[in-house]
Design a protein around this nucleic acid. Structure first.
Lengths: 160, 160
DNA sequence: CTGTATCCTTAGGGATACTG
DNA sequence: CAGTATCCCTAAGGATACAG
């Protein structure tokens, strides 16, 4: 047990937490993967924008604006820019309407899917304000990797 | 492909997103699992406190204070209280020192482990400020559930 | 409809002094 | 050492008007 504990911690975390900071790298509060994630999409809105792109099939400015949480327009513009700057999303011009922009997830963004699935599973378990998504939990208890593969294909297929 | 897309979305998300809000439930911005997660631990510090408990073996106030990100003492107190209120951590008095408190993850907190693993994996892939944790990635590509089981035992074993 | 720009408010958070 | 309590301030965010 003790061995496993130490093994687990070294394996999972400590090893690259103490890696030396590279020169000229963007400055984060620390050199920790959890902190990196927090600073990349750990604000009040980014996660929801990614959710809209990933699961809700949204791709237009107005669609994000209309989500239940009611993001305000200036904040949305700011977050879209930041997410684009961090390489999580792309912005392209709609062929049929030049003034319309299409937002889409990059591979880096799509790769957040596994984390989202675990987050959803956790919330489904503990948020007693939602029903229990039995099939989903069941599939997640099975072969996660195959579920993720399927969904990634699905998301990638919906872009363009 | 199209079928898969729709299947994926219904399966993963939409189904309980539209669940009716229960009476007297704590009010969130929306009835969405991602938003629930965001409002529970999506602030600037909670994730890091949980990280310290989960992977760093920390359990005392001063230990959290000493983390690289330099949380300030009033904020730490506030977040510990919120996390306890949300049932993610417990606070107990140290037997050997009455003025010392021991913080520990609850099951609800421990259950965030899978999400943390995916978050770490993503950051390890995209944060070019850290090295590549090859063994970890490799294990995560294999049987995730067995990895999670091992680590959960390890974390649970370290409490008390 | 897709954003910008502006104005204004407040919560989050930093610094630091203080208490048991 | 384990927290509380204050003071202060900035950045995040809401509301709304405006522009292409």
């Amino acid at each position: 047990m003790q061995v496993l504990l130490i093994l687990g911690r070294i394996l999972v975390y400590c090893k690259w937490y103490n890696a030396p900071m590279k020169r000229n790298a963007k400055k984060y509060r620390s050199n920790c993967p959890i902190n990196f994630a927090q600073e990349t999409f750990g604000d009040k809105w980014s996660l929801l924008i990614i959710r809209d792109l990933m699961f809700m099939g949204k791709k237009y400015y107005g669609e994000f604006l209309s989500s239940d949480e009611k993001i305000s327009t200036n904040i949305l513009a700011d977050r879209l820019e930041k997410l684009e700057g961090d390489g999580l999303i792309t912005k392209a011009t709609d062929k049929e309407n030049n003034s319309k922009k299409i937002y889409a997830l990059t591979q880096k963004g799509i790769d957040l899917l596994p984390m989202f699935l675990e987050m959803i599973a956790w919330s489904a378990k503990y948020d007693n304000n939602t029903g229990t998504p039995a099939e989903f939990i069941k599939r997640l208890e099975g072969d996660k990797n195959s579920l993720i593969r399927e969904l990634k294909e699905s998301i990638a297929g919906s872009e363009t």
